[in-house]
Design a protein around this nucleic acid. Structure first.
Lengths: 342, 342
DNA sequence: AATAATTATGCAACCGGTTGCATAATTATG
DNA sequence: CATAATTATGCAACCGGTTGCATAATTATT
């Protein structure tokens, strides 16, 4: 395992009878170095098998070209789309991404923030865990002037930009759509209402009901973790209700689909007995039968925009504080699971 | 944006009238430092707001505690499961993950390898792009003694470990299952046969046919990119065949589901007319109706094992060359899409 | 040809932990 | 109490690019 000696700019300098300074600049395409010298330097570097030492560079220049990302879980269709978008933009701008998962634990999230901090990421993008409370774990970044950006599940902080969709409007549209289809007794299956995404959708749901003169019943809102099991549990709960609902709005397609499948197994007809609408426009929503109505959530685009925003700021082109939040367009996609009216 | 001055071990040393050496060792829990001094050092560090400088450390110690991952695409259910598994293990072992996507392009893959190389990752885990040819782009890593591990889509290299499932057996099992259900004219929708995963499954498919005395027809193997569109295209192609197949084995659930849905729209009955089996055990396979039979591909586990294997090697516990390949268990999951016999 | 302006290159300190070797401080042994 | 054996701490060089400032080389101007 004895590594061959690494070639440094000093080795190149010596061979070319130049200074390390000139070699460093030549490799960086610095304007003060002549074309001829640059070519000599680059050729020799290639020939000698030189490789740039990021650490020496980072150490001196105090920049890492690395962006941290902390998300609850990698393996969801939505989140991997976001990551893919971020990676694409970051890669094109020569930034590296360090990604870690909080696994929905605020505690693990705090540890990850610390790690990112020690790794001196130039900036951090976060979608917070299910049970995160307060912003204190992020203060040390802000004090050091490290830009912090929230996306999807955000926290409110005057110095941070948030990238979100209009969750209130989305919740409103989804509910209104069910009402238009004739639903009068609508369940909302949602998550922790301390999280902006769920709270906003719940408010949208309530507004839509009120605007149509339908009573808002607290027992019609199910707080769950929105995973597959939660969908199954919700189905059981619905089956036990004295009067069956005629519409269900679920904040996650995957959860919705599992709930729906369970109800169908018990002989419930979708959408005739119960109309369904999900959230995210997950691929699963398109292939299930009946196809699941949903709210389109542009994950890939959100990732691109978040990364782009952060990088623009890092490159000094624009302050991250100039905008406090960016709201992406999301829209209703009506499919068979909610079409009671033909 | 003027950062507050960073606290270094020298600042701590000065305050405690110690040397930087002692502080460095104290923070690292070095055995030669007394308990008392360690406590003083750690307390002062915390109090002064010291943060460890990874770059200075990396520069000197020539280790990065960073592992690179290059995959074709992040946003597939299988791949995000793999990544989640890797991240979990890496995080627990205090390694960072740098992830980048080749987006199925060999060219972009080569660039990413170079970037990882320059970033001096301690090791690299790769699932190669659709059209990657040869191993030359990885040679520079191997020459420098940087361990390289392939998973899922592998390349053959004497110095690299591969983590795979038994694709031959899986292809055999899938095909055999269809035959047992009475299928005699089976299509295999697969990918680039230069990739081990697809070539092996194709061999398994052919072996199963032969073992049952069924003729292997080249035109029954569709080479595609296995995405949603490919599923739709395959459905069209099937509908135009002179004699319809009675079974279809698709190397990807998502593609399978789209193909199936398209055929059903045209009045084909699944499984009565055509039995279907997919690959991966994607969540989608469970919720679609009829539920899609598939091969369970333990992505999360594969990620965990790959990361664990690499890290064990990096920590000097075990040479990566001691095993040349690790084969994970995969199994057939029979569901309604293939059950012709009740 | 002399001077100014421009372009190209180099010096040397710096970034902040790490480590082999030497030395000092403390404890154990005879 | 002297000497050996441990244990604890420090010195100084090192890792390899980067950068402000100075100087050298070349070209333009009068």
């Amino acid at each position: 395992m004895q590594q061959k000696k690494e070639i440094t700019i000093y080795d190149i300098a010596e061979k070319l009878k130049l200074s390390a300074t000139t070699v460093s600049r030549g490799l960086k395409d610095h304007p003060a170095i002549s074309k001829k010298t640059k070519k000599r330097i680059n050729d020799t570097a290639a020939e000698m098998g030189y490789r740039f030492n990021t650490f020496a560079s980072n150490l001196r220049s105090k920049r890492t070209n690395t962006i941290g990302v902390i998300i609850p879980k990698m393996n969801s269709s939505f989140m991997s789309a976001v990551l893919a978008g971020m990676e694409k933009v970051a890669n094109e701008a020569s930034y590296n991404l360090i990604i870690s998962q909080s696994l929905e634990s605020a505690e693990k999230e705090a540890v990850n923030v610390k790690t990112m901090f020690n790794n001196r990421v130039d900036g951090l993008m976060v979608s917070v865990a299910y049970d995160t409370v307060g912003v204190s774990q992020f203060e040390l970044l802000i004090e050091k002037g490290i830009p912090l950006l929230f996306f999807d599940r955000t926290l409110d902080h005057p110095q941070c930009t948030s990238i979100v969709i209009d969750n209130h409007k989305s919740g409103y549209l989804a509910t209104q759509h069910l009402i238009e289809q004739g639903c009068k007794n609508i369940i909302h299956i949602t998550g922790n209402l301390a999280r902006n995404v769920y709270a906003d959708r719940q408010r949208g749901y309530e507004s839509a009901l009120r605007d149509s003169g339908i009573e808002v019943k607290p027992e019609n809102t199910f707080i769950t973790v929105l995973d597959e099991q939660a969908g199954i549990d919700a189905a059981q709960k619905i089956l036990k209700m004295k009067s069956l609902p005629d519409g269900v709005f679920v904040d996650n397609d995957n959860c919705a689909v599992n709930c729906m499948a369970n109800l169908m197994n018990e002989g419930i007809k979708i959408p005739e007995d119960i109309a369904f609408i999900g959230f995210n426009n997950d691929p699963i929503s398109r292939v299930i039968r009946p196809a699941l109505s949903t709210i389109n959530y542009p994950g890939f685009e959100m990732g691109e925009i978040a990364a782009h925003k952060l990088i623009t700021h890092l490159n000094g082109k624009q302050s991250i504080n100039s905008t406090n939040s960016i709201i992406l367009r999301s829209e209703l996609i009506a499919r068979d699971s909610s079409r009671k009216i033909k």
